[in-house]
Design a protein around this nucleic acid. Structure first.
Length: 640
RNA sequence: GCCGACGUAGCUCAGUAGGUAGAGCAGCGCACUCGUAAUGCGCAGGUCAGGAGUUCGAGUCUCCUCGUCGGCUCCA
């Protein structure tokens, strides 16, 4: 039998009736330990599967996404087996591989505590050492149900009862049998380095009305180095945690007595936020947006008109006064629509672009709140573009251009874009949906951005584009969104007079650039690990007099800096130079300017940069010119 | 909201079997006047998240509330 191997010119002659593992052993023994599965005609198969006379064979290694999935999935089985051996009454639910690692949801006789993880790990190590062969089996669904009934695995029975397939696939390693479509590693010994990461509660089938199971998260790798790198990255993420940095850098706080999910900005956080807001205002005005300001409080009637009272009620803060219902705004769009409606609009006015730094309040369930990233009160850089249908594509294009250019100014250059199409429940005609979706797609293509389509993930009132940004350590964050809306123009009955002097219905685009400022701030802090670029730093320069006699000179210099609009401070505390340098470093202040005898005499300055550079004997003017340039360019280059 | 963990001085954390709180840093004072990541000494600082209960006695045990963390669910 001849086998074609992907990536290889020559064909391989093999005997019939051998497995892929045997094929490897014979022809590529050095790969035996690397390959985790094979892919034949796009279908993943076990190494223990028989080689058949069919399509091209691709060797899948751990380095491959699918390879990791196999590796992790087997790891989760080993974990489940370990748990069963430790707690024989356990009932297994599901245990898949995820983006990073794997988990298994298990119904256990008792609550697990973190101290249990090393015990389970120890048992896993044992199972790995046993190097149990992993066997794939097929059996009639009925038999499988019987098997799991004997083993008292009710969740598996429930899964089987709802499955269509018959026969079903099971995998066995030692005494452990699990319902699973695979594929898996050929034996438990193939899992090398692993770690159990955390415990959590999880609903059976994600349904909050059903049983709460215990979920164990884990990860595994082929080498110790990879595991260590992973753990290091986790530490790095912790080091960058905006909640920790927000405290350390004195940017913002949360308070029990203020309520969950609302942010109090300290002076340094407030200035940072204002810098971002000023940037946004400038950029919007430059692009033809008009700023508007709308109230935080509205009568309930407005939200009945907009429809929010029906479908968003759960998320709104409402109250009653003088027999009238009031709503603290969760969104800015209704206000902007009211402004639109204040006078007749013509096609000549379009596109009409209203922009607002609009602060909104949304009720979020207490359990989902998370630092600045998920709050109840936040400010959006929100705009609504009213345009003719034929302007949609161009407007979306401009929004994308705006979004990317703004994110680049803040130092993000890696994006992932999604186009979400019509969901099951929707308003508007199929025709208008198709047209709008096509316009959005075209705008993306015009922009030459790669994007993936999320079928059915659009909002009920129109298709949308989501941009996710990748931060310095590779994590993705939700960023800008651009949504077409056919619903609100209808509900508010807004029109414009066309060339034909007849009323037409505009399309509305909701779009945010940085989205929630709070969330963006959180992302920004984590992206830079608190060491914000010069133009964003709450304190740009700290002037450090070495001894008391240098304070006057330092104050004088500070006045010069302040007059240039820099954010500058003098550290005139009675402390050693070392201490002051240390404080500047810990506060992640970009530049410390040192003033001592030498500087006073020669009229020069010495600069210590955040990155640790020590620059002596700088001319003041040179420093000023350089700084001005860096600020003006919004440079995020750490080098002097 | 649900599951679990947690809440002790401004911050980070200790607190043994229930016997009425402790460190480091920060703060304040004094001395030192310093050349690129912690000068020394002294002082002050807590109704142990809030409330109720058990107990002769609760930071420690029980319950409720609030908040935080990790997840789930949700996310127009």
């Amino acid at each position: 039998m001849e086998i074609r191997l992907k990536g290889w010119d020559r064909k391989i002659i093999v005997d019939t009736g051998i497995t892929f593992a045997e094929l490897l052993e014979k022809n590529f023994p050095h790969l035996l330990e690397k390959v985790v599965a094979v892919k034949v005609d796009g279908q993943l198969k076990d190494l223990t599967a028989m080689v058949e006379d069919e399509g091209e064979v691709e060797l899948v290694e751990y380095s491959n996404e699918e390879g990791k999935e196999v590796y992790w999935h087997t790891s989760s089985h080993i974990m489940a087996q370990a748990v069963i051996e430790l707690f024989p009454q356990s009932q297994l639910a599901i245990g898949p591989a995820i983006k990073e690692g794997y988990y298994y949801d298990i119904d256990l006789p008792r609550r697990l505590v973190p101290e249990d993880l090393p015990i389970i790990e120890e048992k896993m190590r044992e199972i790995i050492e046993r190097d149990l062969p992993i066997k794939r089996m097929q059996m009639r669904r009925k038999e499988a149900i019987e098997l799991f009934r004997e083993r008292r695995q009710n969740y598996k029975i429930e899964l089987l009862q709802e499955m269509e397939e018959d026969p079903v696939t099971l995998y066995q390693q030692g005494d452990f049998i699990d319902l699973c479509k695979g594929p898996h590693l050929p034996s438990t010994g193939r899992v090398r380095e692993f770690k159990l990461l955390s415990l959590a509660g999880a609903y059976w089938r994600g349904d909050e009305s059903r049983a709460m199971l215990q979920r164990i998260y884990g990860i595994s790798f082929e080498t110790k180095d990879e595991l260590e790198e992973f753990l290091h990255l986790k530490e790095e993420a912790e080091r960058r945690d905006h909640r920790r940095l927000g405290k350390e850098l004195d940017l913002f706080s949360f308070h029990e007595e203020a309520g969950a999910g609302v942010v109090l900005y300290h002076p340094k956080g407030a200035i940072l936020r204002r810098i971002i807001e000023r940037y946004l205002e400038e950029e919007h005005l430059k692009r033809g947006y008009q700023m508007v300001i709308t109230p935080h409080l509205y009568r309930g009637d407005l939200w009945r008109l907009s429809g929010h009272m029906d479908y968003y009620k759960e998320n709104m803060f409402t109250f009653e006064k003088e027999n009238a219902e009031y709503v603290v705004k969760p969104m800015n769009c209704p206000g902007h629509l009211l402004i639109y409606k204040t006078k007749p609009r013509s096609y000549r006015d379009l596109p009409l672009k209203f922009f607002e730094l609009g602060t909104v309040y949304r009720y979020e369930r207490s359990g989902v709140l998370h630092g600045l990233l998920r709050v109840r009160g936040f400010t959006q850089d929100d705009a609504h573009i009213f345009c003719a249908r034929e302007q949609l594509r161009e407007q979306v294009y401009e929004c994308l251009e705006f979004a990317f250019s703004a994110l680049k100014d803040f130092g993000f250059s890696d994006f992932q874009v999604n186009l979400s199409t019509r969901p099951e429940r929707y308003v508007g005609s199929d025709e208008i949906w198709e047209e709008a979706t096509e316009e959005l797609a075209q705008a993306l293509k015009d922009h030459a951005v790669d994007y993936t389509v999320d079928p059915g993930e659009g909002v009920f009132y129109g298709p949308k584009i989501d941009v996710k940004l990748k931060d310095a350590i590779g994590r993705l964050w939700q960023g800008p969104t651009i949504q077409a809306d056919f619903n609100l123009p209808e509900r508010f009955d807004i029109t414009y007079a066309g060339k034909d002097n007849r009323p037409h219905r505009p399309v509305m685009i909701h779009r945010v650039v940085l989205a929630g400022i709070e969330r963006f701030l959180g992302i920004l802090i984590e992206h830079y690990g608190g060491a914000l670029p010069l133009w964003l730093s709450p304190v740009q320069v700290v002037i450090v007099p070495i001894a008391d006699r240098h304070v006057e000179c330092a104050r004088h210099l500070n006045a010069t800096f302040l007059s240039r609009g820099w954010r500058s401070e003098v550290d005139d505390e009675n402390q050693t130079l070392n201490m002051k340098i240390r404080r500047a470093q810990l506060q992640k202040i970009p530049f410390a300017v040192i003033i001592g005898d030498k500087e006073v005499q020669e009229g020069t300055i010495s600069v210590r940069t955040r990155s640790g550079e020590d620059l002596r004997n700088l001319e003041k003017d040179e420093f000023i010119t350089r700084m001005e340039k860096k600020i003006q360019q919004r440079s995020f280059d750490e080098d002097w």
